[in-house]
């Protein structure tokens, strides 16, 4: 069972605004799913390697070289706010 306080904390970490009603509902729903997931505890995983890549692919290296993106204007247009060909972001300080 996870508490409303925990849900509120997680919502903050996930950067999702939530009202009390949503928090209350999620506390119930997330608890139900987590209880159901708990059946994994019965599996003996002693000495088992976790899967990193399912077909066993290892790191693939490439040259660290910038390429050209054709339609920069299309990207700039997608910013909710843009100015002089740049995306505008909120002040962070």
């Amino acid at each position: 069972m996870i508490s409303k306080e925990e849900v509120r904390h997680i919502a903050g970490l996930a950067r999702i605004g939530m009202d009390d009603q949503e928090i209350e509902k999620l506390a119930v729903e997330l608890s139900a799913v987590l209880d159901w997931i708990d059946q994994l505890k019965e599996v003996d995983v002693e000495g088992v390697e976790p899967t990193a890549h399912i077909t066993g692919m290892e790191n693939r290296l490439r040259e660290d070289k910038a390429g050209n993106f054709e339609d920069k204007k299309m990207i700039v247009k997608l910013f909710p706010e843009n100015k002089d060909g740049y995306g505008k972001v909120k002040s962070i300080l």
């Binding site: 799913v33 505890k41 599996v43 976790p50």
Partner: peptide, 26 residues
Amino acid sequence: IMLGTYALSSGYYDAYYLRAQKVRTL
């Protein structure tokens, strides 16, 4: 998103994500 954020949050990684990736191997 909430479920994932919870499972990856500090202190829960081993119990959830790491265990799941081990069962995935099995």
